[in-house]
């Protein structure tokens, strides 16, 4: 096995991530390889120096300053919140209008259709031209008479007897 591989093992051994068997193999190699021994010592020195010995303290009144900042952010000025919400208000209103339109189209009751007189007669399975046909079936004098009486009933003088 190469020294490069053992270098990995050396580093893993610092993190206790080497099983017993590998640890034993590593120790055996280290006994015979001065280069890897030296490397291990160097790594040990570096990692040892990196370990935090004593934590430094942050600046004084850490909590008091933090508390003030939190309170300041909690009381956001009105115009800032309006500005913040106005950006969201546009898409929200558009979605609302869209949903409302769809709802109206889907759930509005169907408008009752008004039928014409002819359609009503057709619906009743009667000939809409029946009355007119009756008129034409009469003799000419009778037709005139019927039109006169009809005009009188409607008080309408528009209809004139057929000559």
């Amino acid at each position: 096995m190469s020294c490069k591989k053992f270098e990995k093992w050396i580093l893993r051994s610092f993190d206790n991530r080497l099983n017993q068997e590998k640890q034993k193999t590593l120790e055996e190699h280290l006994r015979s390889c001065s280069l890897c021994q030296e490397k291990r010592e160097e790594y040990r020195t570096i990692i040892g120096l990196l370990h935090q010995e004593k934590e430094q303290e942050p600046k004084p009144y850490f909590w008091e300053r933090l508390q003030a900042k939190i309170r300041k952010r909690q009381s956001v000025p009105f115009w800032v919140s309006v500005k913040h919400w106005s950006l969201r208000a546009v898409p929200i209103s558009l979605i609302f209008v869209l949903v409302l339109t769809i709802a109206i189209l889907l759930f509005s009751p169907a408008k009752e259709q008004e039928l014409t007189q002819s359609e009503v007669l057709l619906l009743r399975n009667r000939n809409p031209l029946e009355e007119t046909q009756l008129l034409f079936d009469q003799k000419l004098e009778n037709q005139n008479m019927m039109l006169i009486f009809s005009a009188l009933e409607e008080k309408n003088n528009i209809r004139r007897p057929i000559p």
């Binding site: 934590e55 430094q56 303290e57 942050p58 600046k59 850490f62 933090l66 900042k69 952010r73």
Partner: peptide, 26 residues
Amino acid sequence: GRVFNMALGMTRNTEIADDIAQEAFI
């Protein structure tokens, strides 16, 4: 302490590390 020192270790600047620590807690 830990948050501040973590920031200090990376920034090497007490002022900035303090600001980062405050912002982290906020």
